[in-house]
Design a protein around this nucleic acid. Structure first.
Lengths: 104, 104
DNA sequence: ACCTTATGCAACCAATTGGTTGCATGTCAA
DNA sequence: TTGACATGCAACCAATTGGTTGCATAAGGT
């Protein structure tokens, strides 16, 4: 699944935030706060796994999910050119940083 | 419409890129390269307008569309915390910049 | 006035999404 | 081994999405 689509649902973003703040979690744990069924959570998690945003491994009867934020980089890079228009200073530094990176 | 959803479709991202690179354009002009009907383009543009990403004004019989990248800031800000994991140096500078910003 | 052009509006369609429920299965603890 | 618990799988459903077509309308040029 496309990373942009993966991030387009508020529930999925919430799951990502939970994994970010609280570390690896099971399906049960991830669903605890949410007002939707376990199966709905599972579906969202499966999409996140397909998008490579989340790694799932089995630990006994539990499926443990770990966040892998790397694919989000693609979104950040797509956003970058437009950023010039909302914060010039930030954009200049990003550009500077980009040049430094080329010189490595 | 939610900004994340607005950005989740590849055609809409293409429209945004076209407006970014070529400036204000009509529906006709925006559809010229694309393999879909004018009405499909119109629908996408209407969604972008709802998401405040695009301003539309009438100029005679043409509807002219202009890009407003500001709402994308929200996405960039959501992405920011996770960025630490894919580029430490960039993240440190972003953090530094954030602090500078606070001191203004 | 007439024709062309750019657009709007509405109906329609197939596929996908986000959710549900019911039931089956594998793991762990008593 | 029995029962509780975490999960998987499948069917089902309503709403939305991304697309189409046909027709109406308003603006401009000749």
């Amino acid at each position: 699944m496309d990373i942009f689509t993966a991030l387009s649902d508020p529930v999925r973003r919430q799951l990502i935030e939970a994994l970010w703040q609280r570390g690896p979690l099971s399906i049960k744990q991830l669903g605890e706060g949410l007002p939707i069924s376990r199966q709905a959570i599972t579906k969202h998690l499966n999409m996140l796994v397909k998008a490579k945003l989340v790694n799932a491994r089995y630990c006994g009867k539990e499926r443990i999910h770990e966040l892998n934020p790397k694919p989000m980089e693609k979104v950040a890079l797509w956003l970058q050119p437009f950023a010039e228009q909302w914060d010039d200073r930030l954009s200049r530094l990003k550009t500077y940083l980009g040049e430094q990176h080329e010189q490595d």
